[in-house]
Structure formats: structure tokens, C-alpha cells
Amino acid sequence: MNHQFIKKLYYGDIPDEPGSGAAYIAKADTAAWPLWEVFIRSKRGLDHKHAGSLKAADATMAIENARDVYTRRQEGVSIWVVESKNIHASNPDDAESFFDPAEDKVYRHPSFYELPDEVKHM
């Protein structure tokens, strides 16, 4: 039996046995909608936070899809969308030179300064 080598079978390891032999001719979808990133303000006074992504043909639809997909349980009061291809990201290879230099600048944090107890709130 060729399944002997498979250990896990839940999502991910369902073996590639020949399936129900669907009569489907695969064709790369010519009308694939672009991918958008969705940012949601969960309540007034908070920043918009990345909620996830979705597909939409245009920005109007992207906002509505975001409303339908990501705010069904009152998760938001405001939505931003941006087409994923328009996001520029820092390179993980640069992470050390980008972010490590901040490590030893402890004097930027208020806890670095020891004040007499008499100064109560500062």
C-alpha cells in the first residue's frame, strides 16, 4: 500500500490518491481579481490594524468585500484597503542593520531614569 509512509492526514497530508476524476479542464483563470490588504479600525480612537486580505475587482468592491468578510461580528467602524502590489516592505535581510541598532539606546525609554520616590507621576 502506498499510503504506508504517510503519517498525518488531517489538513495538509491528505494523500494524493487519484480523486473522483473530475472532468475539469484546468485553465488559469483569465479573470483573476487582484489581491487587497484590509485595515480595520475596531473602534474610534484606535489605529487601523491589518485584518487580512481579499480579492476584489476594484477599490469600491474591495471596501465592500472587506465590510462583508471582516466586519460581520462588529469588528470595525472604519475600513482601509490597499492593493497588495502597492505595498512596499522592508527586506528581512536588512533586519539586523535596520532594527538591532535600536537595541542599546536604552536611554530612549523612561524607565532608564531613576528619580526619587517623591516625584510621583512623571
Partner: peptide, 11 residues
């Protein structure tokens, strides 16, 4: 026709 709209019409 697409998951996003499946969800929309169901709403």
C-alpha cells in the same frame, strides 16, 4: 461566483 461574493449575497 467567487468566495467574497458568496459571503456578500449571504449577508
Amino acid at each position: 461566483p467567487v468566495l467574497e461574493q458568496d459571503i456578500a449575497i449571504t449577508n
